[in-house]
Design a protein around this nucleic acid. Sequence first.
DNA 1: ATGTCTCCTAAGAGGAGA
Length: 263
Amino acid sequence: MTMKIATWNVNSIKVRLPHVLDWLNGHRPAVLCLQELKCEAGNFPLEAVTAAGYHALIAGQKAYNGVALLSLQPGSDPVIGIPGFEDPQQRVIAATYGEVRVISVYCPNGESLTSEKYGYKLRWFAAFRNYLEATLMRYPLLVVAGDYNVAPEDRDVYDPVAWKGEVLCSDAERAAFAALLKLGLKDSFRLFEQADKSYSWWHYRVNAFKRNMGLRIDHILASDALVPSCSSCTIDKGPRALERPSDHAPVFAEFSDSSSPNS
DNA sequence: ATGTCTCCTAAGAGGAGA
């Protein structure tokens, strides 16, 4: 028996609700981490999600950002944000499902290396690293899934020469991502053989999706203690080809049920 | 290729953010 844990930057839950409901019904993930809700918690389409059989924990705000955890079983011990890091931007929500702690995260974009938002991005990553370090001590079975706004390696970029040093690909951003892995986390996608030119985000402009001009910036990190139970990680490009798509595709990882003995 | 999509304010388009 396996359970799926998935992540999807939906770029407005209001607009993408039909896609999300279809995907939930098709995959029945144990947990779906959402990013870029772009709505306040009170405007989240809770009834439709509940009717689909899902519980929801929501950290929303007007217009921008916003994250959620949808789940078949209710989560426990929810935490919103990064404790001790004051931030009006809703980017992080955590809860426990069975034995597993799950974090849905929307890392800052940064805009460009010369933007004030880039400095915020690097400060935010430092705080997030410290939060994950503390979280791992309390929850050895940890999944951190979301839009990291970092392409970790050149093979995660359709044109690494053009993107060299650009935001999402800069050395400092890649170092910030690597610092998360160094805590004892693995990029689940790279635990398995994957097709070349696998991406999770494509710009809306210039027919980028049809031309596969993409970046892999949505990741599911699994703690070292969870890695033995991880059996796959897949980018589902299907929803990106629909009418009115998000610019991101959902990503999901499968884990064997840790409740069975000797698993 | 200043290319697209979504939100906001505020009553028209234009700006912010990605």
